[in-house]
Amino acid sequence: MASSEHYRYGKIRLGGESLNNSSANESHKVIRDIAVRMKNRGVRLVSITGRDCDEGNIELIYVFDEDGVILDHRFVVDVERELDSISDIYSGAINMERENIDLLGMKFKGLTPGLLLEPEKSVIAPLRKRQEEV
């Protein structure tokens, strides 16, 4: 996990380097602590973005906003692992996480697919890279 803070209006650079090693799945467990800390500080959750970075790994970027300051926390996680959800900390996170379930085939504890795609009937994880795209 890595994080960065930026305060350059109109041009916000995300500079957090992601970890990509065997402990990456473990490192994601800190997200609940981070989310609680952020919530208590009155920080707004902006987005949870998933990106396929090959070999079954997804880079998951949590973006927060604290009085205009963008904070990003990044994790590289195994797509097959069931991850901790922060939807009980931020209600607004439910759909952000469910979107990643539908579009990238991720798994979050206590959340189901079917926000944007119909399970069993729609294309599976359309934002995962297909073999010909890798």
Partner: peptide, 8 residues
């Protein structure tokens, strides 16, 4: 508080 919680 709800507006913050739902990230509106």
């Amino acid at each position: 508080e709800q507006a913050r919680d739902w990230c509106t």
